[in-house]
Design a protein around this nucleic acid. Structure first.
Lengths: 382, 382
DNA sequence: CTTAGTTAATTTATTTAATTAACAAAGAAA
DNA sequence: TTTCTTTGTTAATTAAATAAATTAACTAAG
């Protein structure tokens, strides 16, 4: 537990003020004082500092409520910037956000080479570009990095990347050598969840679908990592007594029913088809009412719903947010899924449950990573 | 987020000091200052207050490390007291703890009447007794209450008690009318978990076994309640594709394999036995190698292990703590269970996992409830 | 036995950052 | 116009931290 000191006392109040200005946008000093139950004099002093730092600005005069018109405060959009990077299986996505989390620049680069060196070089170049585009690159407050697989965010290690096979890589040290702002490394799904936290959600599970199925668990606006940073690894949940053998060696894993690859291969088996077929082809067939695709997709939905229902029973979250592949087919897939989930779950956990798709689309990982940086800045950890 | 103020600054430091004295026991002012990184002058002042409050005492002189001998500080055992009460299905258990969490008094009263009035009367009498036994009953800092079923701890409501069928009962108001110290109401399993938190655990799931199967989830020393206070309701996890119909109306629920009642009824079905048999009878037969009991128990263990494995995969906790019925048969049942869990789970979540039985035995609920009171006191919420 | 050097705890002075109170600025309402 | 409100700032006060100085009590070297 943090100690009590003058520095911390001030930091807390300043952080609370900044967060309030961020959340409310256009709030007066008097209102801040009232909401946070601190004196107006204190607000005046702390806001003065925030303005000097270039993080806050006076914008407009608000409506009078019977006396002097209030001066409204807002975040200064160009007060700070953050960079977010997602290392996807076959692409690198990067964004530059301003202090209001508007996307200033974004890039998506297709990668056909899995080498760590290649990923590193491309990323370094993009970071350099972003630095150049800003008049004052010292305003960059950090870089967030999302990578699939098992990541140790404290040490900044990528521990295990199933699709790259790099082994342990100390990404943080490599970046820290070149850049002297704070660097956040985390699993891609957790970065996406950080994006949802930024959007104001505070108690939810974020499930990413596609080649793998992974979740981030968020309680009280904090990501729950687990003892070995492995919390939320839903892909190998046993949700059937048997089923096809999973590549992990066991039977009945969720991924062997509902990952992109297993859906495709199940479908191809049913069709005795050697030609390579894409997921969107299956979805077109599914929509047309074709029998085989219906079998495969309904199975995937059934077991995915069962897995989600299990998570709901255990955690009773406020919301379930689905991102990735399935989120691209909301009407086609998810409406069915929502129904199944409700059938499978206890009333107690369905009550007031919000099931929805991710706020951001294909840039979710990169934007989330950059917003993770902003979030930490607002918590004033540095 | 708490605001910064002189009061809170002081409170934080005083709380940190008190918690340190509790955890380390026999620590000097100089050591406290060093550990908490606050000045020795501050420690002197805040400790003086804690001594005046009667919560802390100077005990012995410690060994010199080359200079003046340090004065060791300890909690004052009779500085405060807390009462814990568990309303079990057929009994009321109560304890009186001193400030060092030693059990001063304890009672277990058999109840053969499920009426709320009866439970209330018996409990009030016990509380009165405990008050009388203390020279200074104003030293009681609170009462903790554990009840099975769904509880809303914020409002102090018992929402739903499956074995009593009382409907919603506002226990807190009823108690608050009579007693003016803080009252904590919570689910019995969560109170047991509070006992484990007191023992120093901070990231675990506590699973209570017996007539129902329920868990408390603890992350960073905080109980996770979920949006409707229903987190950890493992009893109706679907862990098999089918199976006997559960009383909840669904199929494949954990409780229909592993609750005390379903084990007994499965066993009696196998034996075509109308005579009432107890769980311990089955365990005796199991130990003797009888076929039917082995079938039933192995099934229970198989599905219980699968459920735990699912929870581990999702949450990746530091420890799993098993209490209640199964904990009474550690060598006979749990060694097998531990093995099965390890077979079912991913390496990532098994690594460094501690599986063990509850610290307290049959008084776990009552002691935990009383320690919940102490815990909150040490967090200085009041 | 003496003295120098340490460590522990307290006292006093100083500093930080909060609150309170008084006041100026600006508008609403009568 | 006058009076009342609300907003924001400034000056005075206060709480509680730290820093520095001091006293207390011990160990160890000579």
């Amino acid at each position: 537990m943090e100690k009590g000191s003058f520095k911390n006392m001030k930091k807390r109040n300043q952080k609370n003020i900044l967060a309030l200005i961020k959340d409310e946008g256009g709030i007066s000093r008097a209102q801040i004082a009232e909401k946070l139950k601190i004196s107006r004099a204190t607000v005046t002093n702390l806001v003065k500092e925030l303005i000097n730092y270039g993080l806050v600005q006076e914008s407009d005069l608000g409506r009078s409520r019977g006396g002097r018109r209030p001066m409204l405060l807002n975040l200064k959009a160009d007060g700070a910037y953050s960079i977010g990077i997602e290392w996807g299986i076959d692409s690198i996505k990067t964004v530059l956000l301003n202090f209001k989390a508007d996307i200033i620049l974004d890039d998506q680069i297709q990668m056909d080479n899995n080498s760590f060196e290649e990923y590193k070089e491309v990323s370094f170049n993009l970071i350099k570009q972003y630095n150049k585009k800003l008049e004052d690159s010292s305003k960059i407050i950090g870089i967030g990095f999302g990578i699939h697989g098992l990541v140790n965010p404290e040490k900044g290690y990528s521990v295990f990347t199933p699709h790259f096979n790099w082994g342990e890589v100390d990404i943080k040290s490599i970046l820290a050598e070149k850049y002297n702002y704070p660097i956040f490394i985390d699993n891609d799904v957790r970065m996406m969840a950080a994006g949802e936290i930024w959007q104001g959600r505070d108690d939810f599970i974020f499930i990413n679908t596609g080649s793998g199925i992974g979740a981030a668990l968020v309680f009280k606006s904090k990501i729950h990592y687990g003892n070995n940073y492995a919390a939320g690894e839903l892909g190998h949940l046993k949700i059937a007594d048997d089923g096809p053998k999973c590549y992990c060696g066991k039977y009945g894993c969720l991924e062997s029913f509902a990952s992109k690859e297993s859906i495709i291969s199940s479908y191809q088996n049913l069709k005795n088809n050697e030609v390579k077929i894409s997921f969107s082809d299956i979805m077109i067939a599914y929509q047309a009412g074709e029998i085989e695709s219906n079998l495969v997709i309904n199975d995937a939905l059934k077991y995915f719903a069962r897995a989600i229902s299990v998570v709901l029973n255990i955690l009773n979250p406020e919301a379930v947010i689905i991102g990735g592949l399935f989120a691209e087919y909301e009407e086609l897939l998810l409406t069915k899924l929502y129904k199944k989930i409700k059938e499978d779950s206890l009333n107690q956990v369905i009550n007031n449950l919000d099931i929805t798709t991710a706020y951001y689309q294909n840039l979710a990982g990169a934007v989330g990573a950059a917003e993770k940086v902003l979030n930490d800045f607002f918590e004033m950890k540095n």
